[in-house]
């Protein structure tokens, strides 16, 4: 190594996050929300009307993380009643677990009975994924790249993105799934050998997010193929992705 490179290397130091399971994010980060049990019906109605994606329902107040785009506007509208914490572990394998109810302050978790047996037996030690962006805005895609970069380095767990669907154990979909990508998504999926998994990364992928209802979408793929993991976010944070996948494949 030339002397200059060594100097840069020294300065660069160790960059990888040592413990991906317990890393702490900035308190500003918008992760799992907590709704106060004291939130009133009027306050609930107010934020339900304001929420741009219809993520908030009443009686009692709840937030569906599959729809929430983490704008934090509801928190600003009813301060003290809704608080977005910096808890990035918000992955679930059943949509029900993405719903946060007033008074809940428990981590979001996977339902073990909903995890197909072959997932853990086949993929626990190595999981290769093919990513398909189907109307993704490139922020989710960049965060998925970051999950494998020098800081997050999910490769340490044998998880990585591969170029060919033939080499993959599943697909990670980003974006609300545009009509114009629907066919390419199906072809990519068909090319992945079984057993295989489907992961939805980002709120757009889970529910359409801000694009739900747009005539430019074709989400029929999701009616045909069961989803193994939902990863909310706008975009999904690398730590949400990595922890969610580790929980799915049963790696501690």
């Amino acid at each position: 190594m030339p002397i200059k490179e060594i100097q840069i290397f020294m300065k660069h130091g160790r960059q990888s996050v040592p413990d991906l399971r317990n890393a702490e994010l900035s308190s500003m980060f918008r992760g799992r929300p907590v709704i106060s049990p004291d939130i009133t019906a009027e306050e609930t109605a107010k934020v339900a009307a304001l929420c741009p994606t219809g993520a908030i329902s009443g009686g009692p107040c709840s937030i569906d993380l599959g729809r929430c785009v983490f704008c934090r506007e509801c928190q600003f509208a009813v301060p003290g009643r809704i608080t977005f914490t910096n808890d990035y572990k918000i992955a679930a394998n059943v949509p029900e677990n993405l719903i946060i109810r007033a008074g809940d302050d428990n981590p979001v978790s996977l339902d073990p009975s909903g995890i197909r047996k072959e997932i853990r037996s086949f993929f626990k030690h190595a999981l290769k994924l093919r990513q398909v962006s189907a109307g993704g805005d490139n922020s989710c895609e960049m965060e998925l790249n970051a999950a494998g970069n020098v800081n997050f380095d999910m490769g340490r767990y044998g998880i990585e993105f591969v170029a060919s669907p033939r080499h993959a154990d599943g697909i990670v979909i980003t974006g609300p799934i545009s009509v114009n990508m629907a066919e390419a998504l199906q072809i990519t999926w068909d090319a992945v050998p079984a057993p295989k998994i489907v992961i939805l990364a980002g709120t757009d992928a889970i529910s359409g997010g801000l694009f739900a209802g747009s005539s430019a979408l074709d989400r029929s793929f999701l009616q045909k193929h069961p989803v193994d993991l939902y990863l909310p976010g706008n975009p999904v944070h690398p730590l949400t992705f990595i922890n969610g996948v580790l929980d799915l494949i049963g790696k501690r």
Binding site: L50, G135, G175, S178, F211, S214, S215, L217
Partner: peptide, 17 residues
């Protein structure tokens, strides 16, 4: 491939937020 109908949504959305 990425077309999401963004410009139409700007017209259809009722909320400026």
């Amino acid at each position: 491939y990425q077309h999401r109908g963004v410009e139409t949504l700007f017209v259809e959305n009722e909320s400026s937020l």
